[in-house]
Design a protein around this nucleic acid. Structure first.
Lengths: 137, 137
DNA sequence: GTAACTGCAAACACTTTGCGAAGCA
DNA sequence: TGCTTCGCAAAGTGTTTGCAGTTAC
């Protein structure tokens, strides 16, 4: 069993994710970490984000375009990702309720995670471009 | 209106995706294309995959780890992605039935696409490593 | 004391893009 | 003929990693 160390950098990264209500990217977390500790490196931020996600302390979320986002909520819930500005917000959980593993026609598979990602345009972006109603490429 | 050209390369890429029952990555499609046309380039394959996806002829699918996959099916359905070998398979559609946009508590958002991705271990990988039942990092 | 961790920078995997040439409509 | 597309190669983006030095336990 590998012993785990509680370093200042790891505590900093976790507190940043926990202190936000949105879904920051690694780069946003890195920038915020630098503001508090001018010496912390990008690699360390990624290593700690991966560590925390692997230990179930935070959630790593891939979206169709752009970098991964991180979420302090680790329970099953959906996300919406704006294809124009990249913003990620939570979507109601209850849509996932009753979706058991057995509902997917996958006998013999071990399902560990369920990820529901909606994509489209957020209200902000809809408003700032009323003329364009096309789906962006 | 931009006129569209029906080039040999575009037809080749589309026929490759349509000719497969699995969910190939861009690289797999590129390799297969090279076997039929030794001069086709990687950039052209990507450009055509993007073009075809934007025109609704195929579907581009991002999975939690690794490169995007492409799917000849463009109707709403879920996917399972094996965290060990990367294989992607279809999951039953009916789990998504009745999931209307209004079910997600996102008033004011325009939802264009719904992506449901399950991840875990496929039967093949489960069998080839009975000893290891951990979730891979 | 020692193994886990860090900072740094270089490498990595995947994808996009600028450019001049080629070829479809 | 004109404008879309191609091949090529280089650049871009996001993330991981090797190494030597540091630090928590």
């Amino acid at each position: 069993m590998k012993q785990v160390r509680n370093t200042a950098q790891r505590r900093l990264v976790l507190s940043i994710v926990r202190g936000r209500r949105d879904h920051p990217t690694a780069d946003q977390i890195y920038k915020q970490a630098r503001a508090r500790d001018a010496r912390i490196s990008c690699g360390t931020v990624y290593r700690n984000l991966n560590f925390l996600a692997a230990h179930g302390d935070i959630l790593r979320l891939s979206v169709p375009e752009g970098p991964d986002h991180f979420d302090l909520r680790t329970d099953d819930h959906g996300h919406f990702c704006c294809l124009r500005c990249g913003t990620v917000v939570d979507a109601a959980v209850d849509a996932l309720d009753g979706l058991g593993v057995e509902n997917f026609g996958l006998p013999g598979f071990r399902v560990d995670r369920i990820s529901l990602v909606l994509s489209g345009i957020c209200p902000n972006c809809l408003q700032s471009s009323t003329e364009n109603t096309e789906v962006p490429k």
